[in-house]
Nucleic acid binder design. Sequence first.
DNA 1: CATAAAATTTAGTTAAGACTAAATATATTT
DNA 2: AAATATATTTAGTCTTAACTAAATTTTATG
Lengths: 220, 220
Amino acid sequence: MKQSTSIQDYLKRIYELTEDGSPASTNDLARELNISAPSVTGMIQKLAAEKPALVEYQKHQGVMLTPIGKKAALEVIRHHRLLEVWLVQTLGYSWDEVHEEAERLEHVISEDFERRIAAALGHPTRDPHGELIPTADLKMPVDDSTPLSALRPNQFATIQRVNAQDPNLLRHLVGLGLTPGIQIEVMEYSSFDNNLTVKAGQKIIVLGLNITTKIFVEIK
Amino acid sequence: MKQSTSIQDYLKRIYELTEDGSPASTNDLARELNISAPSVTGMIQKLAAEKPALVEYQKHQGVMLTPIGKKAALEVIRHHRLLEVWLVQTLGYSWDEVHEEAERLEHVISEDFERRIAAALGHPTRDPHGELIPTADLKMPVDDSTPLSALRPNQFATIQRVNAQDPNLLRHLVGLGLTPGIQIEVMEYSSFDNNLTVKAGQKIIVLGLNITTKIFVEIK
DNA sequence: CATAAAATTTAGTTAAGACTAAATATATTT
DNA sequence: AAATATATTTAGTCTTAACTAAATTTTATG
């Protein structure tokens, strides 16, 4: 019942890619995992053949997680996000440094360790990027946020989460003052390049689609 | 230059088995690692063939670590022991619970993580069992302790370290009040079974060789 | 010191999980 | 709807690190 590190990575990526309800394609998975497409096909077939199956798979149609696969994925994601909070709170990591460390630790911590850090941290519900942490019974809380890219001028919002791991992007956002909890107002929208001009604190900032699709907000 | 988990385990065990200056035998290594002897031979040959070599190996003569292999081993041991302190101090693990968790974590933490916990803990010199922690520049501090088994009646000593990982034994010792820092007096010695009768606090305790060779003391 | 026992190594397999090259299926374009 | 482009799968290989069975070397014993 305990999966290898690489199986856990597959399940986690499949979870992320199927959050919208549509199956994950072999190619998308290959890209996300930095693994060749044929290797991905092989692993998917293996996961689908397990008893009980961890994924549902039809040739050329992509993969979805079975309920069991989903539990396993949420377990890894819970580990990852709790670890991120823990690294930031107790060891002074910054939000652009935690991802890589958590990525390795998530596979080796015990359930006991998980319980201990969750308790020590006061059972946090979000990681340092504002992402929701799956509950101890492995349910993902419902997320009511909207991508910033969907907002238009004169809308006010609070940043809830930033769906990114790239340290450079994260540091850039800190520099701009765009972190969870921050209030913003949309000033302008350009339909040509989908740029949004937003006001955060005193700053007026122009953001491209690449950034606005990664920032999720609660509309005021 | 970064070794696999299993190579790290080999190096660590070889370090422990060669601390007395004599080479580690294939069989001893196999037993310590829970791996078959032929597998051990294979791995040893591989480690000896690396450039630079991690071990010195002559057929049928056992293995020793090269200076480079020793550094690598001390790195893993430093990780392990710092993690044990960390788990006890910040997450409330008891000394019989830490070993297993540290055993998995030691292979995946970054040098940055190592530095952060070392600093957060105030650069401890011993782990929860009293074992010395290799320094940041990977030197093992000299150990001046004596096995309790070498003491005789009327000698007084302080327990410095307990060289054991078995949770049952460790809990047993806590029950007997035999933990690092505790003062003891040797009352009796039996040359027949090598039992020692010691006084720790109020208690009078008879200990077999299996235990007295694992407890290391500083003679008063 | 010859022989039995124990330790070690060699030889050959296996499993996981990656890879490339080639084949095939699906999707897109004209 | 045919032709092309893209995505996916199949087939076969490689590496790591384990295994067992058999051969060999070393050590211990009679």
